[in-house]
Design a protein around this nucleic acid. Structure first.
Lengths: 167, 167
DNA sequence: TGAATATCGTCAAGTATCTTGACTATATGG
DNA sequence: CCATATAGTCAAGATACTTGACGATATTCA
């Protein structure tokens, strides 16, 4: 643990984006580690991101693509992997000959259950670290931020023209 | 904009991890889009994550590896890319024949400057969306969370044995 | 009905990021 | 000098994501 301090440890960034990123990474690392330690070795952060968009009752693959903010190919490849792992299964959609329904297998539902438990444990740890009030304020701010998406007409430079609907 | 609601839009997750992840992704997408729109086409989120650990005065490559939470190979590959783009340059460390110093080029410093500007604009947008108070509470909670890293002896399942120092 | 068009999913190739393992060169401590 | 640790590199493979093209089914509308 010999740390040279000849270079006066210049400060790391301290703005919302950086803080959010660091906090998000920390949470995910902790969660993923716990999931793997619980036996779900197939678990990865990318897969978690997709699973978060799949309700327990299952969904249409096309609906998933809308929810997750990626391409249908990315979604499909993640689904391929999760299906190969036996976490999900795809069935033909009886109401649309083109579509597929995605739903959890028993294994997948077990993982969700364990995930919920781990999630609560991590939350408790957070509350222990910063107190209930701060934690509540954090959740409140994050929810408010999410709810206000799309409001406030982009302050110039943030040109995010999402127009094309191809691919 | 035809949205079918035959499947009663099951709720998305609503816990810290998910919220942090979503907020972080949104911030990064907005920032990266603005950076690219400003002419820094080499900008990517992975690279941003590394650059955040490089102070304006430059640093030793080895010090970078400690700061960023990845392997030296990952750091090196990112540095290779950034050096090839002309954003950074690597010089031999006069104080250690093995070491290299990493520092910004003119192009890199220009990008930092633009990044700071964009960052402030996004922050203003956030404050507009959720109000000064909530924003301050958000920053406060995130800072507190970061400061309390390592406290609270891991609630069991979160086994993160970081011991080996190889590779 | 039947042709034009859109939507859903797939296949395939390429890029970016990250991981693992092995290796060279320099430093440090006897 | 020798043993060991540290700094950086080279190379191969895995994972995630992007882009482009395609076949099958649905929908629209003349």
């Amino acid at each position: 643990m010999v740390k040279e301090l000849d270079e006066k440890a210049e400060a790391l960034p301290d703005h919302v984006g950086w803080r959010l990123w660091q906090a998000s990474r920390a949470w995910q690392a902790q969660f993923a580690a716990a999931m793997r330690a619980t036996g779900h070795s197939w678990f990865s952060e990318a897969r978690a991101g997709l699973l978060g968009h799949i309700p327990r009752g299952g969904t249409r693959q096309a609906a998933l693509i809308e929810r997750a903010a990626t391409t249908k190919q990315a979604v499909q490849q993640l689904l391929d992997g999760l299906e190969a792992e036996g976490v999900l299964e795809r069935l033909p959609d009886p109401r649309d000959g083109r579509g597929k329904l995605v739903r959890y297998t028993r294994k997948g539902l077990d993982a969700l259950r364990d995930g919920d438990r781990i999630k609560l444990q991590i939350e408790l740890g957070y509350i222990g670290r910063i107190g209930e009030q701060r934690f509540a304020a954090l959740m409140d701010a994050l929810r408010a931020l999410d709810a206000a998406r799309g409001d406030v007409p982009e302050t110039a430079a943030a040109a995010q023209d999402e127009t094309s609907e191809s691919n």
